[in-house]
């Protein structure tokens, strides 16, 4: 496990994102930020701090609680030459504005025969943080199902800044799923890459990364679960189980090649996903693996996700439905025993 005590910039995820937004807005006057409490407040998780005072109200605009309309405004803004970043405070609220996301933002480049681009970022805070059924959902699988949207889900602190910069520069629409745990987690507690350079940089969208190399089991995951997986893998390593972890970074595009290379080596695949299980990320990853690798050459395929229930309020209930350090560790031990 990394010793991060000496990291100079002890940023959290929200500060890394705010820095990317700030720097990108400095570089392009057409980039604007709209959403609820993104102005003076700097975002309820702080992911747009410092932007309002630097760029002013026209470019950093607090919106009324009208998600449906301000998401649609992003479409008109994009058609007029602006590059809007739209903050939807919680991923759970995507339902309120999904129409504009999947019927307009995701389709207009296609419907227009390639003549109209949608350089829009919809950023939103996903993931469980103890806030029960309506403020804890991930929903990246739901959005990844819909054509025309790039789905970016950062894990490491380094990626929070680099992927946000790429999302803002993308001429395609990006739905950027932050995880609340990671927005608040500081560099010194990160297990994956915690170094955030001050200068601008980008991380390409569509390339997975392996924060841990191993030979026994391929664990494919994303977002906060990468941190949990790293912790679990370190623990089971003591018992001689050598886990390779793949952080997908984005669901669309999906870097299946990196997954296939690893699974060919380990022959064992575990997909961990904090989103709902059925018809989602885990099913898609496993399908693509068995479409590409002869199933008989695989020893084990498992998945671990939220078992299709709303996230409960009580901690005792939450712990049995949301993948966590213990549950991931147990899955790894079970798989190792089964081989």
């Amino acid at each position: 496990m990394a010793n991060n005590d000496k990291i100079e910039r002890n940023l959290n995820g929200s500060e890394a994102i705010a820095e990317a937004i700030f720097q990108e807005m400095q570089q392009d006057d057409n980039t604007i930020l709209i959403g609820e409490d993104v102005g003076k407040c700097g975002g309820v998780f702080g992911a747009s701090r410092n932007c309002f005072s630097e760029f002013g109200e026209n470019r950093v605009r607090d919106m009324p609680i009208s998600e449906m309309t301000f998401t649609g405004m992003g479409v008109g803004m994009a058609m007029s030459g602006l590059r809007p970043i739209i903050e939807i405070m919680f991923a759970d609220f995507l339902g309120v504005c999904l129409e504009q996301i999947y019927n307009a933002i995701g389709k207009i480049h296609y419907m227009s025969g390639g003549t109209v681009k949608m350089p829009i970022v919809v950023k939103t805070a996903a993931g469980n943080i103890g806030s029960a059924a309506q403020h804890s959902q991930c929903l990246w699988g739901t959005l990844a199902h819909l054509p025309g949207l790039k789905i970016v889900v950062p894990s490491s602190l380094y990626d929070h800044k680099g992927l946000m910069a790429s999302a803002i520069r993308s001429n395609d629409p990006v739905i950027f799923f932050e995880h609340k745990e990671l927005l608040l987690k500081r560099a010194r507690s990160f297990l994956s890459n915690p170094i955030v350079p001050k200068k601008t940089y980008t991380v390409p969208i569509g390339k997975a990364v392996k924060p841990r190399i191993g030979s026994d089991i391929t664990l494919v995951t994303l977002s906060y679960s990468v941190e949990l997986a790293l912790e679990s893998a370190a623990e089971v390593a003591k018992e001689g189980i050598d886990v390779e972890i793949i952080d997908l970074r984005s669901l669309v595009p999906l870097d299946i090649e990196t997954v296939l290379q690893s699974v060919r080596k380990t022959q064992r695949l575990l997909v961990v996903d904090e989103d709902y299980q059925s018809f989602g990320v885990s099913g898609e990853i496993i399908t693509r693996v068995v479409e590409n690798i002869e199933p008989t050459s695989l020893k084990q395929i498992k998945r671990h996700a939220v078992p299709d229930v709303p996230i409960p309020a009580a901690l005792s209930l939450e712990q049995v439905v949301v993948p966590n350090y213990e549950s991931i560790k147990n899955m790894l031990i079970m798989m190792a025993k089964g081989s």
């Binding site: 479409v75 008109g76 994009a78 019927n103």
Partner: peptide, 20 residues
């Protein structure tokens, strides 16, 4: 747009950009 009611937010986005 083929979705009833959804022309207005898009027009509003243009209006915002024009004013800006």
């Amino acid at each position: 747009t083929g979705i009833v009611g959804q022309s207005l937010p898009v027009a509003l986005g243009y209006a915002y950009a024009f004013k800006m």
